[in-house]
Every structure is written in C-alpha cells, then in structure tokens.
Amino acid sequence: MTINTDFLLRCIGTLEAAHDCGEHFAEATLKLLTDFIADARELAEVIAEPVGG
C-alpha cells in the first residue's frame, strides 16, 4: 500500500484552514452574543408591557 503524501498534506492544510475559520467564527459570535442578549432582554420587557401602557 502506498501513501500519497501530497494528498495527506492537502487534507491537513484543509483541516487547519477549517479550524481557523471555525475559531474566528466562534470569536465573532461571542462578541455579538452580548449585544444579542441585551436586545432580547429589552424586547422581552417591551412585550411584557400591557397594551396601551
């Protein structure tokens, strides 16, 4: 059985790129999450207010 090292190196590069992309996505999501939670809480308060109040 022969191992295609070029193919393996490309696969490893792809996995590293996917990891980097996922890491950046997670960091960006965490930054947005704080504002999202604050907005959701404010919306919940507005929804809980009596109509016309």
Rank of each mutant, 00 (worst) to 15 (best):
E49P: 00
F25M: 14
E42T: 10
R10P: 00
P50C: 05
A40V: 04
C21L: 14
D6K: 09
T5W: 13
G13C: 05
I37K: 11
I47D: 09
I47M: 06
V46Y: 03
L30A: 10
D39Q: 13
L9T: 12
A26P: 00
A26L: 11
T2H: 11
L9H: 08
F36N: 03
D39F: 08
F7R: 13
G53Q: 05
G53V: 07
I12Q: 12
T2P: 14
E16N: 09
I12G: 02
T14S: 14
F7M: 09
L9E: 13
E45D: 09
F7I: 07
D35Q: 09
A44Y: 01
R41Q: 13
L43Y: 07
A40E: 06
L8I: 14
L33R: 11
R10H: 13
A18F: 03
L8M: 11
C11A: 15
T2L: 10
L8W: 05
E42I: 04
C11T: 14
A17N: 06
A38G: 03
A40G: 01
A38D: 10
E49S: 05
D35T: 09
E49A: 11
G22W: 04
D35G: 11
V51S: 12
A38T: 14
C21R: 15
R10S: 15
T34W: 00
T5C: 04
G13M: 07
V46L: 10
T2G: 09
M1A: 15
G22D: 04
E42F: 04
E45N: 06
C21Q: 15
E42Q: 10
E45S: 07
L8N: 09
T29P: 00
C11Q: 15
E27R: 15
T5A: 11
I3P: 01
C11P: 00
T29M: 13
L33T: 11
L8H: 06
L33S: 11
E45I: 02
D39C: 06
F36E: 08
R41T: 08
A40F: 02
A40K: 06
E16R: 12
L15Q: 08
V46P: 00
R10L: 14
T5M: 15
F36T: 10
C11W: 09
V46E: 09
T34C: 01
A48E: 08
E27M: 11
D6V: 08
C11G: 10
A28H: 03
G22L: 07
G52Y: 03
D20A: 06
A44H: 02
G52W: 00
I47G: 01
E45Y: 03
A48F: 01
E45V: 05
G52F: 01
D35W: 01
G13L: 07
L15K: 06
L8Y: 06
T5L: 15
L9W: 03
A28V: 03
A38S: 12
G53S: 08
A26H: 05
T2Q: 12
I47K: 09
L33Q: 12
K31I: 05
C21A: 15
L8S: 04
E42V: 02
